[in-house]
Design a protein around this nucleic acid. Structure first.
Length: 699
DNA sequence: GAGCACTGC
C-alpha cells in the first residue's frame, strides 16, 4: 500500500537543508533551553536504569502518568544510545493531533524540523524522509494498516505503543500482533506504555516481569465527594459551579456533561442565574465544548480568562483525553459518560449513559492540576466511587467485529477465533461478523478471504461501504462518481450546524438541495455544489454547513478515489500478467516508459472511469446501485408508519433529521445508512427504493 | 415531532 502524500510541497533537498540550518542558528537559544528542560524532567534521573532494562529485554512495559515525559523522552534516549540500529523507531498514538504535535515538539528538542530526523504519519498527511527519519510518531491505525502490507514491519527496529491503557481496537490488535511478531523477529524491541493501573494486564499478556514504573509530575488535587446521591445531576452541577464561583479562589472551571443537549440546558440555566448576580460579583463567562460544535466556536473555550473574570467550560468527554484546556483549577464531575455499544444479537448500536470508570474519574480530576494545585468535585458519594469499574470496557468488546476480522484475514491470520486477544470478544460477536462478511462474499464458506474481500480490505472503510463501492462499480461503472461522494459523506457526522434559536430548521436547509427521495443524494448534491462554489466560506454560512466536516468529506473522497484507482490498476496488471505469461519479460526500456506514463495514468484512469466529481447526478442509477450495494440495510414500511429492518427483523422509526421524516405517504421500501437506539430505535440517512429493487435484493 | 459521546484508517 503506497500512501499518497497529500500535502508535500516537495522542497528540494537543498532548500530543506537551508531550512534546517536556519532553524539551527535561529533557535540555538531555544535548543539550549530545551536541553536544560529535558534534564530537569523527573524521568531524566531514570535514564540509565530505563535503558539498561530495555537493552536486556525484548519486551518492556512502562507505567507512567501523563506528564512524566515518557512519550517525548524515551524515544530520544533510545536514539542517543543507538538502540534503533539504523532502522526506525515507531511510536503510536491513538489520535492524529497527538502524533503531529508530539513529533513537532520532539523535533524541536532534537534541533531539527519535522520531516527530517523526526517525522509523523497520520491519515491524509505525512512528514517522513525515507533516508533520514529515525523516529516516527504515527497513529496506531496507520501502523495497523502497514501490517497488512508488511507483516514483519521490517522498517522498524523498535515499536512503542503509547497510551495502551485507552484500549482502542487498533492498539489492542497491534499489541496482539506484536506478540506474534516477537516470535518471528527476535531483533524487534517492543515497548508498551500505559497509565499505571493497567500495566499488570499487559505484562501478564506478554508473560514478562519487566515493568518499569515512572513517577509523574502532577500538582496535588483535592477530591471532594457528595455526602449523598443527587436526584438531578444537572441541578447538582449547577449548584456546585455557583458555589465554586462565589467561594473559591481564582481559576477556571471545567464541568463534564454527557451531551450537547445537557450542555445547552445547563448554559441556559447558568445564564438565568448570572442575570441575578449582584453588581459587584465577579464575572462568569460560559463556554461550551463538544465535537459537533464547529471549530471556531470550540476555540472560544480555549481563550484565556481576563484578569478578575472566571470561565466555566461545559464540556462532553472530549475534554477528558482529546483536548487540554489551560488554566483549569476546578473540575466538576457528575461521573457519567455517554458511550456507544453494539448489540450483536439485535445488530444495532445503542447510545447509553453509563457511570464512568475509576480511571476516567482520575483522568478528569487530573484536568484540574495541570498548572497548579486544583480541586475536583465529584457529584457522587465516596461509596459510589468505590463501586465503579476500574476501567471502561475495552472498545473491542462493544464493537462490531467485521472490520477487525476482515483486517486479520487480510494480514493472513486464518484462525481468528484462536487469535490471542488481550480481552476476548464474545462468541456472538464473531459469529455475527463472520456471517456478515460471508453475506458480502468477503469470506467464502470456509471463512477464507476472497479476492473481493482482499480488495475490500484495501479501502479504509467499514466493510459494508467497501463492498458497496465495489458492487456499485460492477453494477454500473457510470455511477461511481456519485457513489464515491455518497460514501464519503456517510463517513462524516455533523455536516450541518444550526445554532440554537435560528429561525431555520434542518429540513429547510435539506430542501434547498433535495434530490429524489434520498438523504444521500441530497447530501451528494450539496457536496457537489460546495465543490463548485466559488466562495466556499459563504456557501457554508448561507447553508448552515459545518465547513470543517464537509472539507473532511472531500478529503475522504479524494483518498477513496485514489485507493479505488489503485485497485483498478492492480486488476489490469493481473490481467496483463496472465496474458503475458508466455511472452518474454518486458524489456528494461519498456519498464522505464511505463514508469514515465504512470504520472498520467491516474488522470487517464480518472477520466476513463468517471471517478471525478461530476455536475450531473443520475438519480436512478444511484438508487439501483445503493439497493444492491447496501442491501443488508433495507427496510419495509409497516401499517403503523414504522419500518421493519429486513435483516434483523427489528422495528424502527425514521430519524427526525431525515428528509423523509415528513414525507407523506411514507415510502414502502427504503435503504438506510445507520440504525441507532436512543429513546427509540431510529434509521438515519434514508433512500427510497422501488419495489422491483426491493424484490431483487430480498430474493 | 425528536435530538449522537469520542476516536481512527
Amino acid at each position: 500500500m503506497e500512501i499518497e502524500k497529500s500535502q508535500s510541497p516537495n522542497k528540494s533537498t537543498v532548500q530543506q537543508q537551508i531550512l534546517v540550518e536556519k532553524n539551527k542558528n535561529g533557535n540555538l537559544g531555544l535548543f539550549n533551553k530545551l536541553q536544560k528542560e529535558r534534564k530537569n524532567l523527573p524521568i531524566f534521573k531514570h535514564r540509565q536504569g530505563l535503558l539498561d532494562k530495555i537493552k536486556s529485554n525484548q519486551i518492556s512495559v512502562i507505567a507512567g502518568e501523563t506528564g512524566c515525559g515518557k512519550t517525548t523522552q524515551i524515544p530520544q534516549y533510545l536514539i542517543e544510545e543507538g538502540l534503533n540500529k539504523n532502522r526506525m523507531i515507531a511510536v503510536t498514538q491513538p489520535r492524529r493531533v497527538a502524533a503531529i504535535t508530539i513529533a513537532q515538539r520532539v523535533a524541536q528538542e532534537m534541533n531539527t524540523t519535522v520531516g527530517n530526523k523526526v517525522g509523523y504519519s497520520v491519515r491524509f498527511e505525512e512528514a517522513v524522509d525515507k533516508n533520514n527519519t529515525k523516529l516516527l510518531y504515527m497513529t496506531d491505525g496507520m501502523l495497523l494498516r502497514e501490517t497488512i502490507v508488511d507483516p514483519n514491519l521490517s522498517r522498524f527496529s523498535i515499536i512503542v505503543i503509547d497510551e495502551a491503557h485507552e484500549r482502542t481496537i487498533n492498539s489492542d490488535l497491534l499489541i496482539s500482533l506484536l506478540k506474534q511478531l516477537s516470535e518471528r523477529r527476535k531483533d524487534l524491541k517492543i515497548i508498551i506504555m500505559s497509565a499505571t493501573i493497567e500495566t499488570e494486564k499487559f505484562a501478564n499478556f506478554f508473560e514478562t516481569e519487566n515493568i518499569i514504573y515512572l513517577e509523574g509530575r502532577c500538582h496535588p488535587i483535592e477530591v471532594f465527594y457528595s455526602k449523598k446521591p443527587h436526584a438531578d445531576y444537572l441541578d447538582a452541577a449547577l449548584n456546585t459551579i455557583l458555589q465554586i464561583h462565589f467561594e473559591e479562589q481564582d481559576g477556571d472551571i471545567l464541568c463534564f456533561l454527557v451531551g450537547q443537549e445537557d450542555i445547552e440546558d445547563m448554559q441556559q440555566m447558568l445564564e438565568e442565574k448570572i442575570e441575578l448576580f449582584p453588581k459587584e460579583a465577579k464575572k462568569l463567562n460560559i463556554c461550551t465544548l463538544y465535537a459537533a460544535l464547529p471549530s471556531h466556536l470550540q476555540l472560544l473555550a480555549f481563550e484565556k480568562s481576563q484578569e478578575g473574570e472566571r470561565k466555566v467550560v461545559l464540556s462532553t468527554n472530549i475534554a477528558e483525553t482529546s483536548v487540554t484546556i489551560d488554566g483549569i483549577k476546578y473540575v466538576v464531575d457528575p461521573g457519567l459518560v455517554k458511550t456507544r455499544k453494539y448489540n450483536p444479537n439485535k445488530l444495532i448500536e445503542m447510545l447509553l449513559v453509563v457511570p464512568v470508570s475509576k480511571s476516567s474519574a482520575m483522568q478528569r480530576a487530573g484536568r484540574a492540576g495541570r498548572q497548579s494545585a486544583g480541586k475536583c468535585f465529584r457529584l457522587y458519594t465516596k461509596y459510589t466511587h468505590d463501586t465503579l469499574a476500574e476501567f471502561m470496557l475495552p472498545e473491542i468488546l462493544r464493537s462490531n467485529l467485521s472490520t477487525v476480522i476482515l483486517q486479520m484475514k487480510a494480514i493472513g491470520i486464518k484462525d481468528v477465533k484462536g487469535f490471542q486477544f488481550i480481552d476476548r470478544p464474545h462468541e456472538d460477536q464473531f459469529i455475527e461478523s463472520i456471517e456478515n462478511l460471508q453475506q458480502m462474499n468477503a469470506l467464502d464458506a470456509n471463512e477464507n478471504i476472497t479476492l473481493h474481500g482482499k480488495e475490500m480490505a484495501e479501502l479504509p472503510l467499514e466493510p459494508i461501504y467497501a463492498h458497496f463501492m465495489l458492487v456499485a462499480f460492477a453494477t454500473n461503472p457510470n455511477s461511481i462518481s456519485v457513489v464515491l461522494s455518497a460514501i464519503s459523506l456517510m463517513q462524516v457526522e455533523n455536516l450541518f450546524f444550526i445554532p440554537k434559536g435560528a429561525k431555520i430548521s434542518l429540513l429547510d436547509v435539506l430542501l434547498r438541495f433535495q434530490l429524489g427521495n434520498s438523504d444521500q443524494l441530497t447530501k451528494v448534491n450539496m457536496l457537489h455544489q460546495y465543490y463548485l462554489a466559488k466562495n466556499k466560506k459563504s456557501f457554508c454560512k448561507e447553508n448552515f454547513i459545518n465547513q470543517k466536516n464537509i472539507k473532511k468529506a472531500l478529503e475522504v473522497r479524494q483518498q477513496l478515489e485514489n485507493y479505488f484507482l489503485d485497485i483498478l490498476k492492480k486488476r489490469s496488471k493481473k490481467n496483463q500478467k496472465q496474458n503475458q505469461a508466455n511472452i518474454q519479460q518486458q524489456s528494461e526500456e519498456q519498464q522505464i516508459q511505463e514508469e514515465l506514463a504512470k504520472g498520467n495514468t491516474l488522470k487517464k484512469l480518472q477520466e476513463e472511469h468517471k471517478t471525478a466529481i461530476q455536475q450531473e447526478i443520475n438519480t436512478e442509477e444511484f438508487i439501483s446501485c445503493i439497493a444492491k450495494g447496501l442491501s443488508v440495510k433495507a427496510a419495509k414500511l409497516n401499517n403503523d408508519g414504522t419500518y421493519t429492518i429486513i435483516r434483523s427483523n427489528i422495528q424502527a422509526y425514521i430519524h427526525p433529521e431525515s428528509l423523509l421524516f415528513y414525507s407523506k405517504p411514507k415510502p414502502d421500501y427504503i435503504i438506510f445508512n445507520e440504525v441507532v437506539s436512543t429513546i427509540k430505535t431510529y434509521l438515519r440517512d434514508i433512500t427510497e427504493i422501488s419495489f422491483s429493487d426491493f424484490k431483487e435484493i430480498s430474493k
